[in-house]
Structures are given as structure tokens and as C-alpha cells.
Design a protein around this nucleic acid. Structure first.
Length: 264
DNA sequence: AGTACCACCTGACGGC
DNA sequence: TGCCGTCAGGTGGTAC
């Protein structure tokens, strides 16, 4: 599930539930989700006795500042999420890591498909660099965007999914951005002049902003956005056309042939 | 550099 | 009912 807006939702959730409480226990129930040689004992050493002081998000990674200690780094794969609860009877089914607090509550990292990852880092900046993440899609400015796409010539769909170019965009948002800007998902960055790049940037910022608002603040997704009709043979919300499903960069891609053309 | 393909996982769904 | 292929908003490695 999680793209940038979902992870931002998890960040706010963690922020509002789990800060400033002494951690009394950590259990990693599944070593598969641990990244980069981190062991359960490392997590325990890093967290137990400390508190979570602050949160940060970069792309699809969520960070919690352990005081004293390193940053806890969480990636949610396709099915991860957080659950804060009191009674163990509410422990979610695919709990891969459980943090327990002095107040008797617990924070579970639940991840059905085990595609998420948990790690530790001395600094967010260092971790972002180590993971080769591009600038965060919700914060990057126009200059930063130009720099990120500079020298690249991938198909738009592939480019947006490349976290080393820009961090946070996933499959659904990539399709939505291309729909909003009216460009075919197989158009390449090299096809675009600066005017179209600017339109692409504006569409990207709009899509990230609106979907994040919808996810975290009860905002609404406009009715004429693709994500409502993102299915094969669906009706295009903006023209009389039919939504098509194709494979681009090995990923399912939905678009409207009527609204989205190749430039030039 | 970019792309295709495979792999890592679990579970839901449709067809036979 | 069971089996099988396909699909799902994640990423990483490898070969061309």
C-alpha cells in the first residue's frame, strides 16, 4: 500500500502516539524485515530504556529519533503499517516488530508480505545517502527537480518509480501525475522541453499535496482524477475514452490514450 | 543509462 | 473443494 502520503500518515500517527515514553521492550518477530545486518539485539540495545523524541520522513522511509541513540528507520513495503494499542489481544496479525512502552501501550510494525524493512542509522542524511534516495517529492523545489531529472532519459513512468531520482512516488501516484499532465507514461524525460518539465513538476507537487491532504487531513481527491477509475476498460473521468492497462518498466500502468499523448 | 526479467513474500480472486 | 495463474500502491540484482 504505502506511497509517500501513506508514510506521511504513519509518521503523524507515530508522532501523536509514541513520543516521549520510555521504551521497556522490543521484539523483532521476523528477521526477514531487518535490513543491513541489524539484529534483534541491536534494536533492543538501541531502543530499550530510551524514548522516541521526534520523527522524520524521506520518500517512503519513516524515521524515529531515539533518545539517546540512533534513528530507527522503517520502510513499509507494500503492506506495512503501524498499530498503537494497549492490550495484546489487539496485536495485529502480521506483527513483525513490537515496541512496548512504560505506559503499557505497544507499537506494532505490521507487514503481511514481509517486503518492508527495519534498520538503524546514525543520521537521516547519512541513511538517505547510503540508500541513494533522491530529494523528497513533497519538499523538492523546482530547481531541485530540474537537477534530479538532469541527464536522465527514462520513460516518465520508470523515472517516477526510481527512488534515486525522486523519493516517495509509487505506482499509483506516478500514473496520476502522468494523467494530470496529459503525458503518455512511455514518453521520456528527453522528450520534454523545459516548459513541459515545469508542467510535470507542478503536476507532481499537486498530486503529492492533494493525496497527502486526503490521507492525513480528510481532504478529498477530485472526482476527475484517474485513481478513481484506475482499472482496465474503465471510463476516463475527463473524456469519452477508455482507460488502458499496459506494462511499463515491469509495472502495471493505467492511462487514457485520449488524454495522454506523446509530446511533439 | 535504461530496460527486461527474476526474485523476494503473502493472500485474494477467478477459471477450470 | 482443490489447484493454478494472475494480480497487488514495495525493492534489489543481473544481464543485455
Amino acid at each position: 500500500m504505502p506511497e509517500l502520503p501513506d508514510v506521511e500518515g504513519f509518521r503523524q500517527y507515530l508522532y501523536s502516539t509514541s513520543l516521549h515514553q520510555t521504551i521497556t521492550g522490543v521484539e523483532a518477530r521476523d528477521s526477514m524485515v531487518l535490513l543491513g545486518g541489524v539484529a534483534e539485539s541491536d534494536l533492543r540495545d538501541a531502543l530499550v530504556g530510551g524514548t522516541l523524541r521526534d520523527t522524520h520522513r524521506h520518500g517512503k522511509w519513516l524515521f524515529a529519533d531515539v533518545q539517546p541513540g540512533p534513528w530507527l528507520c522503517l520502510h513499509f513495503g507494500m503492506t506495512g503499517h503501524l498499530v498503537y494499542f494497549k492490550h495484546l489481544a489487539h496485536d495485529p496479525e502480521h506483527d513483525r516488530m513490537l515496541i512496548s512502552f512504560e505506559n503499557g501501550f505497544h507499537l506494532a510494525y505490521d507487514c503481511q508480505r514481509r517486503l518492508g524493512r527495519i534498520s538503524l542509522a546514525e543520521s537521516v542524511e547519512g541513511f538517505v545517502e547510503e540508500q541513494d534516495l533522491g530529494p523528497d517529492a513533497a519538499r523538492v523545489d523546482w530547481e531541485g527537480f530540474l537537477k534530479a531529472v538532469n541527464g536522465r532519459d527514462a520513460m516518465l513512468k520508470s523515472a517516477f518509480l526510481d527512488q534515486s531520482m525522486l523519493a516517495g512516488i509509487g505506482n499509483i501516484l506516478a500514473d496520476e501525475i502522468n494523467f494530470q499532465v496529459g503525458l503518455h507514461p512511455r514518453a521520456t524525460l528527453g522528450d520534454l522541453d523545459e516548459r513541459l518539465l515545469r508542467e510535470l513538476y507542478d503536476a507532481m507537487r499537486l498530486v503529492v499535496e492533494v493525496t497527502t491532504e486526503a490521507r492525513t487531513a480528510g481532504g478529498e481527491i477530485p472526482g476527475d482524477w484517474l485513481m478513481h477509475d484506475r482499472e482496465e476498460s474503465g471510463d476516463c473521468p475527463r473524456c469519452e475514452g477508455t482507460i488502458q492497462r499496459i506494462i511499463v518498466g515491469s509495472r502495471s500502468t493505467y492511462f487514457c490514450p485520449g488524454c495522454q499523448g506523446l509530446p511533439g
